[in-house]
Amino acid sequence: MAKILLVEDDRPLARLVEAYLVRAGHTVISALAGDEALALWKSEQPDLVVLDRMLPRVSGEEVCRRIREASEVPILMLTAKESEEDRVEGFRLGVDDYVVKPFLPRELVARVEALLRRARRDWLAPPRSPEIGAFRLDPAARRAWVDGRELELTPTEFRLLQVLLEHAGEAVGRRSLEQALFSGWADASALYVHVRHLRQKIEPDPAHPRYLKTVHGTGYRLDP
C-alpha cells in the first residue's frame, strides 16, 4: 500500500495509530520529535505524513513548512487546537487535512486513505496546460498564473483552482468541491478557508472578487 511517516510524541497514541495503519496494509515509519521527522522524511521519502502539531525540539508547523518547501507529499495534521485561526494557519502552511484530538483511529485511517487516493488521481491525470481567460495552469509542474503573474499555491489551493477552471463559468457545489479536495472528509470550515486563501492570491481586491464568486446556496463559480 503506502509508506507513511507518523510523527507523534505521545507514545501510546502513536502505537495505537500505527497499529490501525498497519492493519490497513500500510508501512509506518515513526518519529517522536520534529528534527527526527525531518531526517526520516528526507531519507525515507514517504507517500504521506501524519504530523502532530505540538512536537519537541522542532514544532509540527515548522516541520510542515520545511517539507512544503521541497515536496507536495500529502500532510495530515493532528491537533488539540480547534479554533478557526489555528486551522487557517495550518492550511496556509500547506496542511492538506486536519484531525482534531481526541479522534477515532478508524476515522484517521479513512482520511489518510482519502488523501492517498487523491494524490494517486492527481499523479495519474494526463498532463494538460489549460489557458482560460486570465488563468494558465501547468498541472505537471504544479504551476499557475493569473494575468501573467505566477501564483504561490499550496497543493490543495492548486487543486481547488484546477477544479474550478475545469468548470469555468459554472456554479460548483460545496459538496462536489469537498469531494474533489478531501474525498468528502472535511469539516465545514476547511473549504471556506481554502477559498479565502485562493481569493487572497488571485484577486486584485479579495473583498470584492472579480474571478472567484460565491453562489449563495450552492457553492462557488470561477469567471476567468
Results as ranks from 00 to 15, higher is better:
Leu5Gly: 01
Leu6Phe: 04
Val7Tyr: 01
Glu8Leu: 07
Asp9Asn: 15
Arg11Phe: 10
Pro12Cys: 09
Leu13His: 06
Leu13Glu: 11
Ala14Gln: 15
Arg15Ala: 13
Ala19Arg: 15
Ala19Gly: 15
Ala19Glu: 14
Ala19Val: 05
Tyr20Ile: 09
Val22Lys: 15
Arg23Leu: 10
Gly25Tyr: 10
His26Leu: 04
His26Arg: 03
His26Val: 02
Thr27Met: 01
Thr27Glu: 11
Thr27Trp: 03
Val28Asn: 03
Ala31Ser: 11
Ala33Thr: 14
Gly34Ile: 05
Leu40Asp: 02
Ser43Arg: 14
Glu44Ser: 05
Pro46Leu: 02
Val49Phe: 00
Val49Ser: 00
Val50Leu: 14
Leu51Glu: 06
Asp52Trp: 00
Leu55Ser: 01
Leu55Val: 05
Leu55Arg: 04
Val58Phe: 02
Val58Trp: 10
Glu62Met: 09
Cys64Glu: 05
Arg66Asp: 10
Arg68Cys: 05
Glu72Phe: 04
Val73Gly: 04
Val73Ser: 02
Met77Val: 13
Met77Arg: 01
Met77Gln: 03
Ala80His: 01
Ala80Trp: 09
Ser83Thr: 15
Glu84Leu: 13
Glu85Thr: 09
Asp86Trp: 01
Asp86Glu: 14
Glu89Leu: 02
Gly90Thr: 03
Arg92His: 06
Val95Arg: 00
Val95Asn: 07
Tyr98Asp: 01
Val100Lys: 02
Phe103Cys: 07
Leu104Arg: 12
Leu104Ser: 13
Arg106Val: 12
Arg106Tyr: 01
Val109Lys: 07
Val109Gly: 08
Arg111Tyr: 07
Val112Pro: 01
Val112Asn: 04
Glu113Gln: 14
Glu113Ile: 09
Leu115Ser: 07
Leu115Tyr: 06
Arg117Met: 03
Arg117Ser: 12
Arg120Thr: 08
Arg120Gln: 13
Ala125Val: 03
Pro126Trp: 12
Pro127His: 12
Pro127Lys: 10
Ser129Met: 13
Pro130Cys: 06
Ala134Ser: 03
Phe135Lys: 10
Phe135Pro: 12
Phe135Asn: 02
Arg136Glu: 03
Arg136Gln: 13
Leu137Asn: 05
Leu137Met: 11
Asp138Gln: 08
Pro139Thr: 15
Ala141Arg: 15
Arg142Glu: 08
Arg149Asn: 11
Leu153Trp: 09
Leu153Tyr: 07
Leu153Val: 10
Phe158Lys: 06
Leu160Phe: 08
Val163Gly: 02
Glu166Cys: 05
His167Leu: 05
Glu170His: 11
Ala171Gly: 14
Ala171Ser: 15
Arg174Pro: 11
Arg175His: 14
Leu177Gln: 04
Leu177Asp: 09
Gln179Tyr: 12
Gln179Trp: 13
Gln179Phe: 09
Phe182Cys: 08
Phe182Glu: 11
Ala188Cys: 04
Ala190Cys: 02
Leu191Ile: 03
Val193Glu: 02
Val195Phe: 10
Val195Ile: 14
Arg196Leu: 13
His197Leu: 15
Arg199Phe: 06
Lys201Gln: 07
Asp205Gln: 10
Ala207Ser: 13
Tyr211Lys: 10
Tyr211Thr: 06
Leu212Asp: 08
Lys213Trp: 12
Thr214Pro: 07
Val215Ala: 12
Asp223Gly: 03
